[in-house]
């Protein structure tokens, strides 16, 4: 019996370490290929580690490939979308959670049922609209469709509903205005959900590809994923350069995630809990 138990245990460890190696291998190879000298990643047999590490591909990305510009574009877009949507969603979420007004339930049901519509459906008319407004190939082209999200409103509403009404009543008796209550009472109390949502929005926006690919029509406005896909078209043979580009694209989200892991995991759980 004991013998069988330790057998199982070693088997489990073996499997798990194997799975961990398989999961990490692509990242390790990306990092190491990015510092190989030109042609170093196209050898047989493949090398896992470079003989003479070099930073030349990173230098090339910075000096010739405009990567700083793409990085700035990604940061501007992701930060703007996060801040604006957090403001708009939290206001709407508060209204749905704590106010009673005519048409509330109908409006909320309409929003919930609209969550089944995939974003791709809106993309063609959205492009035409933004084109007419002169916003294609500008930051606004990405920010505007991201300003509010039904999912975000829903999550914030759920959270604010758990805040006791008596707190709001007390503030109102003390003479606080509606906006003051939102700003000074609700937002601080809703901080955990706001941080979680901010993290999801930021990372989602950073990693987003299809819409930025459509709306950013000029090279200088590309976000990092679009720039990387475009680079792939021109420099597919340049493995080491592409890997350096992948590192720069991935690194910021990875750092943000590692710093705020707890909030992210928490957010997954919120999303998976049904009403």
């Amino acid at each position: 019996m004991k013998f069988k138990k330790s057998y199982q245990k070693y088997g489990l460890y073996l499997l798990m370490f194997l799975a961990a190696i398989l999961t990490l291998a692509p990242f390790v190879w990306m990092l190491s290929a990015s510092i190989m000298p030109e042609g170093g990643a196209n050898q047989f047999p493949p090398r896992l580690f470079p003989k003479t590490p070099t930073w030349e591909h990173y230098q090339r990305l910075f000096s010739q490939m405009n990567i700083v510009r793409y990085f700035v574009n990604s940061v501007v877009v992701a930060v703007s979308v996060t801040l604006i949507s957090l403001l708009f969603n939290s206001m709407a979420g508060y209204a749905f959670a704590k106010y009673r007004f005519p048409g509330k339930n109908k409006l909320f049901k309409l929003l919930l049922s609209a969550m089944v519509i995939p974003a791709q459906v809106t993309m063609l008319p959205l492009f035409l609209m933004l084109n007419r407004m002169g916003l294609v190939n500008t930051y606004w082209g990405i920010i505007i469709p991201g300003m509010a999200s039904i999912y975000g409103i829903f999550l914030i509403r759920q959270y604010i509903m758990s805040i006791p009404d008596s707190l709001i009543e007390a503030a109102r008796i003390d003479g606080a205005t509606d906006f003051y209550i939102y700003l000074r009472l609700i937002l601080p109390l809703a901080k955990p959900i706001l941080v979680t949502l901010a993290l999801f929005t930021f990372m989602g926006s950073w990693n987003d590809f299809l819409w930025p690919l459509i709306v950013m029509t000029g090279d200088s406005m590309y976000t990092l994923p679009v720039a990387l896909a475009n680079l792939m078209g021109e420099h597919a043979q340049d493995t080491e350069l592409m890997m350096a580009g992948a590192v720069i694209t991935i690194l910021p989200v990875l750092i943000v995630f590692l710093a705020m892991q707890k909030y992210y995991i928490h957010g997954i759980m919120l999303g998976s809990v049904k009403e």
């Binding site: 692509p26 990242f27 190879w29 990306m30 290929a33 990643a41 990372m203 950073w206 990693n207 590809f209 990092l224 994923p225 679009v226 990387l228 896909a229 792939m232 493995t239 592409m242 890997m243 580009g245 992948a246 694209t249 991935i250 989200v253 990875l254 995630f257 992210y264």
Partner: peptide, 14 residues
Amino acid sequence: VTTLVAVAVIWRYI
């Protein structure tokens, strides 16, 4: 949490 486009680029070489 990593960017899908970057991951696709890596796997293309794998």
